[in-house]
Write a protein that binds this DNA or RNA. Structure first.
Lengths: 214, 214
DNA sequence: GGCGCAATGTATACACCGTCCACACCAAGC
DNA sequence: GCTTGGTGTGGACGGTGTATACATTGCGCC
């Protein structure tokens, strides 16, 4: 129905040229609108102007395509974090800069969940494997993925003497948990209907709790 | 294949007798094993020994069945929380009892995620509506659903002067976020592979952060 | 006690999905 | 220029959710 809008004019060449990327782009577009369950092989091939089975030349199966989309979503989040960190650190030094880094990571995370719910759910709602292991496909400009960006922010905190070295181990898990949980509640939990201003307040309070309670 | 094991002997009566409940039970069984995406209408009807369309006499569509399963999962969690609270409060009074209540809620939540991952994902991985509104289908013996149980625990905390009245509003959201986020990370995030003992440590630390940082 | 209706279960059918297999095309290298 | 292997096509199968029409039967009313 509405999907027909995405129908392409028939290709003139037998070979597509860059089908893998086209399928990935289509998958990302689908995920943005409908989350992971909307990443449908056949629809992606339709949008690429190609027969369903062509996808199997580039992805082992639907799951593989979904993982690729997920990696792209993580990369987008990483990039957003890097930008926000650069913005918040502007003109700050030492202790203030370290604190700003952590805030920026959390803020960017929560904003990403709000502004790109489909990609966010794709990034974290799919049992995909590794956030700990590095893989350029899910990293930002710095080569670090979201989880690693948080880790470095915590390292900064230690260096600035804002976090005792003793409490550094596993701190990323605790911090991540808090922010991630809130994002989920806002996205598809009981906080969905709350006015944005109240949500912002809760976000600030949560970030404060993390800073204080870590 | 393996599902054939659940095939029932053919019914002798034309009417099933309690099909709605049978479908719900089948749905719960499916969710326990495979999470929300495993709650498949046709398979549920198969297990109930009935033709696929029969389900539509009792549920508007697959989504409706899934919501019913979700409500049951929430009810199971609520019951687990009530039990754990009763256990931890045994012999305690006043301040200690209040603190125990909150701990129990968090502990039960995290354990439920670990021991019933399928139901947990069904309860919280599906964009279902209301955790705030009361509905007996998702409540435990006390008639309160998980979210409301947390709220009452926080009220206790205020009464015991462990939480300043001023910080009471929205506290449930912050506390819930932290615990919920950790549960998700353990279930399908980067913490999946960690040894159980380390996870327990992180759980304890997170609960401590909540108590302290609230 | 029997009748009729509404509730419940069945039969058939459609569109969509992921995926397998055999085949068609075509670009690049010997 | 012929082969070969990578890429896209065609057709098919079994699975899913769901609509529409039909069969059966328990229950309430006379």
């Amino acid at each position: 129905m509405m999907d027909a809008m995405y129908q392409l004019p028939p290709r003139r060449t037998y070979h597509h040229g860059d089908l893998r990327q086209a399928l990935l782009d289509a998958g990302i577009a689908l995920a943005r609108v409908g989350g992971p369950e909307a990443v449908v092989l056949r629809e992606a091939t339709r949008r690429a102007g190609v027969v369903p089975n062509a996808a199997y030349r580039h992805f082992a199966n639907r799951q593989a395509l979904l993982q690729a989309v997920r990696a792209a979503a993580l990369a987008a989040l990483a990039t957003a974090m890097e930008k926000e960190r650069a913005r918040q650190r502007r003109g700050k030094h030492g202790v203030d800069a370290a604190r700003a880094s952590l805030r920026a990571i959390g803020t960017a995370y929560l904003r990403f969940a709000r502004t790109e719910p489909g990609l966010f759910r794709t990034a974290f709602g799919v049992p995909g494997d590794p956030e700990t292991t590095a893989h350029p496909a899910m990293a930002g400009k710095s080569g670090l993925n979201p989880f690693q960006l948080l880790s470095t922010a915590l390292d900064e905190l230690v260096q600035a003497d804002l976090l005792p070295k003793k409490r550094r181990p596993d701190a990323e898990y605790v911090a991540w948990s808090a922010v991630h949980g809130l994002a989920m509640l806002v996205l598809e939990g009981p906080l969905r209907r709350l006015p944005r201003t109240q949500i912002r307040g809760i976000e600030q309070r949560l970030l404060a709790m993390v800073e204080k309670g870590l």
